[in-house]
Amino acid sequence: MSYTGQFRVWRGDADGGALADFRVEVNEGEVVLDVLHRLQATQAPDLAVRWNCKAGKCGSCSAEINGKPRLLCMTRMSVFEHDEVVTVTPMRTFPVIRDLVTDVSYNYTKAREIPSFTPPAGLAPGEYRMGQADVGRSQEFRKCIECFLCQDTCHVVRDHEENKESFAGPRFLMRIAELEMHPLDVADRVSAAQDEHGLGRCNITKCCTDVCPEGIKITDNALIPMKERVADRRYDPLVWLGRTISRRRD
């Protein structure tokens, strides 16, 4: 059951580019990445696409399909009508390298800025005891495949390039939550989450949660609990009154 699908694929690089139209065969059960591979093999051999596992496990093939951030390998063609034009562009929050490939180094930079796991001193390997209940929350966050779709969709950086400096993005704010809830971690990142990694910039509008291909409840389970922890530490009402007044002054 094949048909000829209509595709518009963004082609270009940092200097400019445009959507190119293609007509290409689509077969039953295929995903968008299959069709792009067919384009490579038949019409556009140098079409740049980043991918790896083609099974939704590695988070390499992130792009935007009909304007929505998605994994190319997990978007089935069956969700589109046969006569629907499928538009594929690179992620629009990161600098483009070529065609559908973007420079995601922002994410690796942010990853490096989060203080790493810090085990208690003097605990020997194998002595660790922690219950399933203790690890459950952090395990949810560790399902992350680092596709960076949440980072791509988050309006804090998508719509405001200047915020990239001060905002780690949902993926890495979630990494902070993961470590803060880690039963063996002894470091403290609560104040830093707010001051250095920009937790306060998140306005909990949940686009990150909406696009996460792993179905991680980023906002409800990581960001909001972190905001509550920050409130514990920082926003005792009297303390904040004093702080807000002094901040408004300078």
């Binding site: 304007g67 309006h155 998508r158 719509d159 915020n163 306060g200 509550e228 920082r234 904040w240 901040r247």
Partner: peptide, 29 residues
């Protein structure tokens, strides 16, 4: 801010809940 995901918001600058008055949201508890 934003109206929908991957739809650009109209504002030129954005600070989220980092300043007055939105920082007051932290008093929710």
């Amino acid at each position: 801010a934003p109206a929908a995901c991957a739809v650009p918001e109209p504002h030129a600058t954005y600070h989220g809940e980092t300043r007055f008055p939105l920082i007051l949201q932290n008093s929710h508890r």
